[in-house]
């Protein structure tokens, strides 16, 4: 027996090697579409620029309380690439600082909405047919039946207008989508034999929900998250456009667009550049999201 054991070669790849292998495979899937790489580049540059805003913005002071009527209403020039607004503040600097709020919005909303939504989805799906299921899913239905932007507007309007409350509003309207997504998967997964096996051997509910069912839901969740960041930012910009987001003088993309509309078309740069910034950030996240979806999808042959 001993001799036999020694002969058996145990080829156990080290965790680092397995991680590297997985990374290589995923990068291959991701990078096959050049748009995904473009998305990644856009998103990474926006993140870097937003983090280093005080150092990269040409006029960091213009993001706060600042007035300079001498240089107000100037069109794009070498000194002010995107021009200056009616208070003489540099539009480019304000856009760079506004990215911070936009990114924070996208990250925080999903960081809260996704775990909450997923948890309720798992619970309702696993206890399908029980009172808990009915309770959770009917509440979800109520949230989903109201148009999302209206719901967010209503919640944000009730609360004091600031970035935190805008995030709360968007979070409240966002979690039911994840509940619905996970619910559908959990109801079918709970009947898989591997879940039954775990139940029969006596595993706890925590194990079944989070170790058996959840890992099998992760890739659609991540895909949806990647595609959702852009939309969250858009909803955030919409709220800030109607004055329910970050309050002046702190810049926010929607708020800048809204301010600029009063001076259209003379001071067009006040509106056009923040709008473009919104478009670029959402485009970047959506292209990145597509790439992540490609990376997560198991089937290699089901796409053209």
């Amino acid at each position: 027996m001993d001799a036999k054991i020694q002969r058996t070669e145990i080829i156990v790849p080290s965790p680092a090697a397995r991680l590297k292998e997985g990374f290589r495979k995923n990068w291959y899937k991701f990078s096959r579409n050049k748009l995904s790489i473009a998305g990644l580049v856009i998103v990474l540059s926006i993140i870097v620029v937003a983090i280093l805003a005080p150092y990269v913005a040409p006029y960091p002071k213009h993001a706060g309380k600042f007035v300079d009527y001498v240089n107000a209403n100037q069109g794009p020039s070498a000194a002010h690439f995107f021009g200056t607004d009616n208070f003489g503040r540099d539009v480019l600097s304000r856009i760079i600082f506004a990215f911070r709020g936009a990114l924070l919005m996208g990250i925080m909303v999903l960081a809260i909405a996704v775990p909450v939504g997923v948890f309720f989805g798992l619970l309702a799906g696993y206890y399908q047919g029980s009172f808990l299921d009915t309770f959770i899913m009917r509440i979800t239905d109520i949230f989903l039946s109201v148009p999302p932007l209206l719901l967010a507007l209503a919640i944000a309007a009730v609360l004091e207008p600031n970035l935190t409350n805008a995030m709360i509003a968007v979070t409240v309207m966002w979690w039911p989508w994840y509940t619905r997504l996970v619910y559908g998967m959990a109801t079918s997964l709970k009947n898989e034999y591997f879940v039954t096996s775990a139940e029969l051997v006596g595993a706890g509910r925590f194990h079944i929900l989070f170790r058996e069912i959840l890992p099998n839901c992760l890739s659609p969740i991540f895909t949806k998250m990647a595609l959702d960041v852009g939309w969250v930012i858009l909803i955030g910009a919409s709220l800030s456009f109607v004055g329910l987001g970050e309050q002046p003088p702190t810049p926010a993309l929607g708020q800048m667009v809204s301010d600029g509309t009063r001076y259209m078309p003379d001071l067009w740069w006040m509106t056009v550049y923040p709008s473009l910034a919104i478009a670029v950030i959402i485009l970047g996240f959506n292209m990145l999201g597509d790439g992540i979806r490609d990376m997560m999808s198991k089937g290699e042959h089901d796409r053209g």
Partner: peptide
């Protein structure tokens, strides 16, 4: 539960992928 076990027919779905 410890003393009684079952092996299912379909080995594809009885192990968590």
């Amino acid at each position: 539960k410890k003393d009684m076990q079952i092996v299912f027919q379909d080995p594809g779905s009885s192990l968590n992928p």
